[in-house]
Design a protein around this nucleic acid. Structure first.
Length: 268
DNA sequence: AATAGGCGCAACCGCCAAGAG
DNA sequence: TCTCTTGGCGGTTGCGCCTAT
């Protein structure tokens, strides 16, 4: 091989596209036990036919327990507008000021809603209170330096709910520890997560079922029951209300892991 | 009821920066 | 100092859902 940048991973034979529930479970279960020190090695060790980048993205943008899903509040939208005015398309920077929101989500909300709104308000010279508030917010912050004086109050940020990934994982990663009432995956010293998920007809049958599909699975073997229990605990079977409740309680529960693909608008 | 178009969002791609050797 | 690896970021795409006709 010549010099040059190596691909992030061996691309041949890797799966692309939407993640299945089974893949999500494998990823979460693996990170829950081992963390994500090495994204490149993770998919292989977790038994996933995915690129490390893909795993990382899935975790960061969807599976991470500290993600707030649902409609953006007006405060959040105004914060995004303000920060975008100062920072431009620095989505990760903007996201860092919006706890529990992902850069991808912010980027999407900007591209689909806020950009149009701003364009509209600039073009139409509207006198709505919303536009007035936007203008007021922006006029208060006229330069990048102003970011230094931004505090929680100005940005409508509740820092009490800011939690680092590490902190959260510290409560989740103990092999036999509890996740606030959630069942834990039984971990053997030489536990191979792939062994749990593989070679099981019921599991394989489910593997092609994408997130959000309603799946009915009656108990069979102990392992099936365990997976079923895990799914329930992870919220795969739960109503969206469960997720909302979780969010409201600020609890890090496994049921936060798998929010069923939410209808629009998001419920959790 | 069927369908075309628009919209929202998850996921991919390519580039860059930092760190290790 | 240079090369390579890895994680991270921002732009973009494509699929599925929703709505209007």
């Amino acid at each position: 091989m010549g010099r040059g940048r190596a691909p992030c991973c061996e691309k041949v034979g890797l799966k692309k596209g939407s993640w299945t529930r089974a893949e999500d479970m494998k990823l979460v279960a693996y990170i829950q036990q081992h963390g994500h020190a090495n994204w490149r090695a993770l998919p292989k060790q977790a038994g996933l036919l995915r690129c490390g980048k893909s795993c990382r993205l899935r975790w960061i943008n969807y599976l991470r327990p500290d993600i707030k899903r649902g409609n953006f509040t007006q405060d959040e939208e105004e914060t995004i507008i303000r920060l975008h005015h100062l920072l431009g398309n620095k989505w990760s920077k903007i996201a860092s000021h919006l706890p529990r929101r992902t850069d991808n989500e912010i980027k999407n909300i900007w591209n689909t809603h806020l950009k149009k709104r701003i364009t509209h308000s600039n073009g139409s010279n509207s006198s709505s209170s919303e536009n007035s508030n936007q203008h007021k917010a922006m006029s208060n912050l006229s330069s990048i330096e102003d970011l230094n004086i931004l505090d929680s109050e100005q940005l409508n940020i509740d820092h009490s709910i800011m939690e680092s990934d590490k902190e959260i994982m510290s409560t989740l990663s103990s092999p036999f520890g509890a996740i606030d009432g959630a069942k834990m995956i039984p971990v053997e010293p030489d536990f191979d997560i792939g062994d749990v998920f593989d070679d099981d007809e019921a599991w394989l049958a489910m593997e092609d079922t994408t997130i959000g599909d309603q799946v009915e699975m009656s108990g069979g073997t102990e392992r099936e029951k365990w997976i079923e229990d895990l799914e329930r605990e992870l919220g795969l079977w739960g109503s969206s209300d469960a997720g909302l409740q979780c969010d409201q309680q600020q609890n890090v529960q496994a049921s936060c892991y798998f929010q069923t693909r939410p209808p629009s608008p998001f419920l959790c």
